[in-house]
């Protein structure tokens, strides 16, 4: 499929609003300026855009809005040059966007199969479109056994992203949240500790072989959880993970995002675990 606009050139997008999610994380709601591009622009959950601050540079950021939302949402942790520059922007300012790039989650599975969603930290950003999509397409009268579990881990209560939204997700998902640690003044009554023990709170057993898992988070977290999932009977072919690399061009021509022979920007960022299991086992590929 040929794109109707040139993805090698940034297009202008204006900032409608900015929301401070946590101490170092901001959400930017964007609107594409050009009408033709706005109509032609379509993304799949799990894809990313290259956000451009001309004069500073470009950074790959996953898309966090739902496919049918009327704004384009990007949730950014202030870490490098581009994200720091972005953090100084205000509503009304304009930035550059190229995209969407990448493959996205296998959404047909979100409807057909039993689903398990696991996110760690900022890893919820590329999964939020899936959550939004499922919230919108909520099946009425789902039996308790069909409610998909949503597991989320954050460093501390105040680092929980989209915290106010989890209440609405609870209508569709069996939500389990844990934090690494909680200060007493944070009034946290939920789980404290690592994510794997949360897998014991959801009943997988007989459903495990045909459960599909979507996972995104730090690579060590994903590797560790995948091991646990496999031990609980999930199949490697049904586990999908979104990888992080330093995409620079988004088009498979700069080489930065290579994970062995895979270009994370175009072969990923979502991979079927089974296809990359051998590569994940080797350090520093």
């Amino acid at each position: 499929m040929k794109d109707t606009y040139d993805k090698s050139l940034p297009f202008a997008a204006s900032i409608r609003w900015i929301k401070k999610e946590t101490r170092d994380t901001l959400s930017f709601a964007l609107r594409i300026e050009d009408e033709h591009i706005r109509k032609a622009y379509a993304f799949a959950p799990g894809q990313f855009n290259m956000l451009s601050v001309p004069g500073v540079g470009e950074a790959p950021i996953s898309i966090s809005s739902g496919p049918s939302d009327d704004i384009l949402l990007h949730t950014i942790r202030v870490a490098g040059d581009v994200t720091t520059a972005l953090s100084r922007f205000e509503a009304g300012n304009v930035l550059g966007v190229r995209g969407p790039f990448g493959n996205g989650w296998p959404m047909e599975r979100a409807e057909m199969k039993r689903l398990l969603i696991i996110a760690g930290g900022l890893g919820i950003a590329p999964l939020r479109p899936v959550l939004r999509y499922m919230l919108k397409n909520e099946k009425p009268n789902a039996s308790p056994a069909e409610i998909p579990p949503l597991i989320y881990g954050a460093r501390s209560p105040r680092n929980i992203l989209f915290r106010d939204e989890f209440r609405s997700y609870a209508a569709v998902f069996d939500v389990h949240i844990t934090v690494d640690k909680a200060d007493p003044q944070e009034h946290w009554s939920g789980n404290i500790g690592l994510m794997p023990p949360l897998l014991d709170k959801i009943s997988l057993s007989s459903k495990a072989p045909d459960t599909t898992a979507f996972i995104c988070g730090p690579e060590v977290m994903m590797r560790c959880l995948i091991e646990e999932l496999l031990a609980r009977g999930l199949r490697g072919e049904n586990i999908f993970l979104s990888m992080e690399r330093n995409m620079n061009c988004g088009m498979g021509t700069c080489g930065h995002c290579m994970f062995a022979q895979k270009f994370v920007c175009k072969d990923g960022p979502v991979f079927r675990y089974q296809d990359i299991a051998a590569l994940l086992a080797v350090k520093e590929l």
Binding site: L9, P10, A12, E33, P54, G55, G92, N93, V94, G96
Partner: peptide, 12 residues
């Protein structure tokens, strides 16, 4: 590409 950035716009 060449860019021109201003407060409310971006030219490429």
């Amino acid at each position: 590409f060449h860019f021109h950035r201003f407060e409310t716009g971006l030219g490429i």
